[in-house]
């Protein structure tokens, strides 16, 4: 288990440990089944073109789930996620598959974030973060924010 991050460890500007993700057509199929979102926008070329997005795009909710993992990985077992929000601003296009389980070469997405505010409320040590998913060009296609509670070194 990685070391538990405590509120004493973070300041405004502290970076959240980044998380890498590779969206593939295979992952999107899996996500469709697991989430129950069977919108053909995410798997059918002609439909995606007719919808004006060019080609099948990564589900917004999948990117939100990545950001959820970014935060829960970072705050650890003793941290508590209170709020998570994100906006689906830019389209992301999954890598196609080269073999049955290996994607073609292409972009890697990074979930990142940093602390924007640290304060106490009602005895809780709260930390606000700016978070986002960026594509292979460094564009933030999915900006958002999170509010977490972190434990203190004293265990309070």
């Amino acid at each position: 288990m990685p070391k538990q991050v405590c509120c004493e460890d973070v300041e405004v500007g502290t970076e959240i440990t980044p998380l890498a993700k590779i969206a593939t057509t295979r992952m999107l199929v899996r996500w469709a089944g697991a989430s129950g979102d069977f919108n053909p926008l995410h798997y059918e070329d002609d439909f995606a073109k007719a919808m004006g997005v060019g080609a099948p795009i990564v589900h917004g909710a999948l990117k939100r789930a990545w950001l959820g993992q970014l935060m829960t990985d970072w705050i650890g077992e003793e941290g508590k996620l209170k709020k998570l929000s994100c906006q689906y601003r830019g389209m992301d296009y999954p890598r196609k598959m080269k073999t049955i389980d290996e994607p073609r070469d292409g972009e890697t997405w990074w979930c990142k974030g940093k602390v924007t505010r640290k304060y106490e409320d009602d005895g809780e040590h709260l930390v606000e973060c700016e978070i986002w998913v960026e594509n292979g060009n460094g564009d933030r296609t999915t900006p958002g924010s999170a509010l977490v509670v972190l434990p203190t070194r004293m265990g309070k």
Binding site: L81, K82, K83
Partner: peptide, 12 residues
């Protein structure tokens, strides 16, 4: 009839 998911805010 055409729809896109604009984003979400969750409070746990």
């Amino acid at each position: 009839p055409r729809i896109l998911d604009g984003g979400v805010e969750l409070e746990f």
